[in-house]
């Protein structure tokens, strides 16, 4: 009932109102342990969602199911109206609209920054090399490290690596960006440069799902904050409502733990 009103408000906020991600009764088990319990979630075009929750709550697993790095066992994951199924080729096509940034960057250490950004363009989209390089430089400029293009990932700082990872994902021209704790592995002084790149991306209208504990980022950028625990979505609300008036005791406890330390 109340979730409906929230979704309505979000939908009205996003003029288009077109849903790009739909999770319908999605469940997943690791062996006998159920990590995700009947997740229902609809994400609208251009919406920015922050997912938080204690470790082990299933938030990473949930967004990894969205691009099928983890395969769910029950329910449907529908991207732009198309559900993942048995056909791997079809799945690859669906997945192509989704970019992902990882906690540990996962840049390819044997390739230069530029090659990291052009590799998938050249081999997956068969873009000519010169064009791919131009695209790569465009996005490296957007994350403000074009001058590092010829260096190798391990020569860069963590913050720079993560920005390269963002540029690399953007090079594939995704409609949706997933961020799996993008700042958790960074030294404190480097967190801001990555968050700034993400804020800029959000302002450009990209649909984003961000798993993070950066609550200031959530306040500033998110349209909706989702709190997960024990494989379920406990609560979701626009940031001011979420932070000022959490309805569940579990959410209150979690917020008190991460905000006052």
């Amino acid at each position: 009932m109340s979730t409906d009103t929230i979704e309505k408000s979000v939908a009205s906020a996003k003029q288009s109102g077109r849903s790009v991600i739909e999770l319908v009764g999605m469940s997943k088990w690791y062996g006998n342990f159920q990590v995700l319990k009947d997740i229902d979630l609809t994400v609208y075009e251009g919406e920015r969602i922050v997912v938080c929750g204690p470790s082990g709550s299933g938030k990473s697993t949930m967004i990894r199911c969205i691009n099928q790095l983890e395969v769910h066992q029950e329910g449907d994951v529908i991207i732009n109206g198309k559900a993942y199924g048995k056909d791997e080729k079809q799945n690859d096509l669906i997945r192509r609209d989704i970019g992902m940034v990882f906690q540990s960057f996962n840049l390819f250490p044997h390739l230069s920054v530029l090659e990291n950004c052009t590799m998938a363009q050249i081999w997956v989209k068969e873009t000519p090399k010169a064009e791919a390089e131009a695209v790569a430089m465009h996005f490296l400029e957007r994350v403000r490290i074009p001058e590092q293009a010829l260096k190798y990932p391990l020569q860069l700082s963590g913050g720079q690596q993560q920005r390269v990872a963002i540029a690399r994902a953007l090079c594939m021209n995704p409609k949706i960006m997933l961020f799996d704790e993008p700042t958790s592995a960074l030294d404190p002084e480097m967190i801001n440069e990555v968050l700034e790149a993400m804020i800029e991306l959000a302002q450009s209208g990209m649909t984003m799902i961000v798993v993070t504990h950066e609550m200031n980022f959530a306040r500033k950028v998110a349209d909706r904050v989702i709190f997960m625990d024990q494989g379920e979505i406990v609560e979701q609300a626009p940031p001011h409502a979420f932070f000022d008036n959490p309805r569940y005791d579990r959410t209150q406890l979690f917020l008190s733990q991460i905000l006052h330390h």
């Binding site: 690859d92 192509r96 990882f102 840049l107 044997h110």
Partner: peptide, 30 residues
């Protein structure tokens, strides 16, 4: 080779043979 390399390759849309020949094998051989 860390699992993250396979995941990053998959997330970029590289198929099994592409990921193997372009990302995984060069690192493993090195």
């Amino acid at each position: 080779i860390p699992k993250g390399q396979y995941e990053a390759a998959a997330a970029m849309g590289l198929g099994y043979w592409q990921a193997t020949t372009l990302i995984i094998m060069p690192q493993a051989l090195k």
